[in-house]
Design a protein around this nucleic acid. Structure first.
Lengths: 180, 180
DNA sequence: GAAAATATGTCAACATGACTGACATAATAG
DNA sequence: CTATTATGTCAGTCATGTTGACATATTTTC
């Protein structure tokens, strides 16, 4: 990696200097702290926590999600999820439907209340996020997407390689709004 | 903002589309989940938690930190910090010195064990972080730093405007390694 | 068709890291 | 001298994570 040929490697090695990595670690901590803080304010009003947010978010975004898949996304145990999921079902934010092909599965769907909550939580974070993307600069959106994708372990980031391209097509050249 | 002049605004507005913001939120979640996961493995070996990591990190990075400042960085309460800090002091990872001008203050310093632990934890995350910065591309490092800085609330991000410039000078043009 | 594997749910017990509110001590500031 | 500040500590609580065991329904496999 040190004696690599004359690509753009030279300049990049310097971004990995210890001092800069430490500063980046802190930035990531602060960014995440404040990002989640936006939603925490809303959650506090209705007596929910971050765990509820995550579940409502992912179920709303992936209707019909299986419990096992949700566990894998959140990387928590069944029991941890159970309490939160039960509460969300009891309070009618999330509904379960038996799988049609495999009736053991309980597919998860957001109710309209769940969707409304997810939207409200997303909105609380939208300003910060979109303003930060603007600050990243014109090509920055793509870089940020790539950076974050690469921070994700293993195969999961494959879900996002497409996304980075999406960001590129949207922010890349001018005006083609209809590319989603 | 919509009718803004012919700067780079047009392309950027599109990066703030709802679908993309939601995808970015998820990326941030996954990225942070896996980033902290690297350190969690090390912490588990020695029976510490994330709270210990944060304290050791910030004290090592800011020697002589006051307790009040640490509380403000972590955005937790005195009592939450107390347990973790006490354990770190008892186990000799962190030492306290009375302030010289104001003897009420207990300034925090890492011992050599604390510095070693901080370094080991940082190392566990370094590969992921530096590899992701490389993936961000040559100009990407700067964009990522700007993005993260802007994600931070209020005045705290001012500490990092200088950092973004640092990143730029390191990754910007070619070979000047000695710029730290 | 019986047995094994799978998807889910649930119980008990526990750890970590956050919270509030109250109070104590020492030192500085007015 | 009094008020304020910086810190520490006590008691109690809550949210969210853990492990391990076990139950139920269903699908898959032999």
């Amino acid at each position: 990696m040190r004696g690599a040929p004359n690509t753009y490697t030279d300049s990049m090695v310097q971004t990995t200097q210890p001092e800069q990595l430490l500063a980046l670690s802190e930035l990531l901590f602060f960014a995440y702290r404040d990002f989640t803080g936006d939603a925490d304010e809303v959650l506090a009003e209705i007596g929910f926590g971050r765990a509820h947010h995550r579940v409502v978010h992912f179920v709303t975004r992936r209707p019909g999600l299986r419990v096992a898949e949700l566990l894998d996304i959140l990387k928590i145990t069944k029991q941890s999820l159970a309490r939160v999921l039960r509460e969300l079902i009891d309070k009618d934010y999330i509904a379960q439907k038996r799988g049609e092909t495999d009736r053991r599965e309980r597919l998860l769907y957001s109710t309209s209340a769940g969707e409304a909550l997810a939207a409200r939580l997303a909105l609380s974070q939208a300003t910060r996020l979109s303003q930060a993307m603007i600050a990243a600069g014109p090509h920055g959106a793509e870089s940020v997407a790539h950076f974050l994708s690469q921070m994700v372990s293993g195969d999961e980031n494959k879900h996002f390689s497409a996304f980075a391209t999406l960001i590129r097509s949207a922010s890349g050249a001018g005006d083609e709004t209809h590319r989603t």
